[in-house]
Simulated scan of single mutants.
Amino acid sequence: MRSLLILLPALLATHHVWAQQLPPQPPRQGLPAALAFELAEYDAKRADGLNRLAQMAKAQLEGVRKNQMEAGNLEGTNATLKAMSQLPVTSLEKADPPEGAPPDAVLVFKDHTRKAFAGITGLNSQFIPRIEQVKVELLKSGDLAGANAADALAKQMRSESEQLQLAKEPVTGAKTEALSSFTVEALIDGGSELHVTKDGIQWVVPGGEAKPGLHVGSNEATYVNGARWKPKWKNQGERGPDTSDVYPIKTTAPKLISETVLVSKERFGKHDERTPVATSVKDGHFVVTIRDPEGGSRWYKVRIKTLP
């Protein structure tokens, strides 16, 4: 078995991908230079793309795992770890989340599977015509063995894409489950609001305070279930008023509650006492208001959960 790369052209700019293995390939040794060149490029793209996507999914699942441990759910913790071990998902046989996986882990797992399958089929669609062209050139030059090797590779890519297309409707058409609990971490200095809707979260800075992550020259990300998110702002500068883009995440907003997990000078640092975080509902949004009137910035970690 030979590792190859899955990089979905349409997702290349927005999604990161992880490494994968395919069914047996034609032997590499003795391949014509033209075919070996195409395979080397394909391998590099596939390996890099899948590696990135799996890293992103693992970071999200790690956040789920920690939440399950804090909640005392051993079955959910073990199932989430098993889901992490199954990455990357590149075949129908591995497309189902582990039994007992919590809804949050199932959502991440299915999203990873959808992106991986789309990446494989997208990359294959790019390279099949190129491999076919190499086959024709090799046959014209009298290299029958090389032409047969190229033909076998093109057929293998086409067969794989056809198999993964069988899962396209169930995977992408399945009802997306809302997260029952998730955490958000950000560096805050002054009044900031985290708006939570059914389809995502975004930052709103109503006044002239520093935008989350941008206090005094800082350039820190926000972390959602441990996954890194760098908000994009409508206006330039490190201070508001301003509104960020939306981080896509399914929730049960506005039927939510919030609890403060940690407030610290450094991320994962010692807990500090600050003005309590407040919550409200505005225009169907669940709003977490972090006033932070005290001097200096602090890392805030809040957990947002579905109402019991």
Rank of each mutant, 00 (worst) to 15 (best):
L7P: 00
L7K: 13
L8D: 04
L11P: 00
T14G: 15
Q20M: 14
Q21W: 08
P24Y: 09
G30F: 05
A36T: 02
A36C: 04
Q55W: 11
K58R: 13
Q60E: 15
R65V: 03
R65N: 02
N73M: 06
L74N: 01
E75I: 15
G76E: 06
K82H: 10
L92H: 06
P97F: 06
P98T: 01
P98R: 12
L107G: 07
R114I: 14
F117Y: 13
F127I: 06
F127A: 00
I131W: 03
E132A: 02
G146T: 05
G146V: 06
A152C: 00
L153S: 12
E160W: 08
E160Q: 12
P170Y: 04
A178D: 08
A178S: 15
S180T: 13
T183N: 02
V184Y: 01
D189P: 00
S192R: 11
G207M: 02
E209A: 13
T222I: 07
T222F: 03
Y223N: 06
R228V: 11
E238S: 12
G240H: 00
P241R: 02
P241C: 08
D242K: 01
I249R: 03
K255C: 00
V263T: 12
R267L: 06
G269A: 04
S280G: 03
D283Q: 11
D283L: 03
F286V: 00
E294C: 08
E294Y: 07
S297K: 11
Y300H: 06
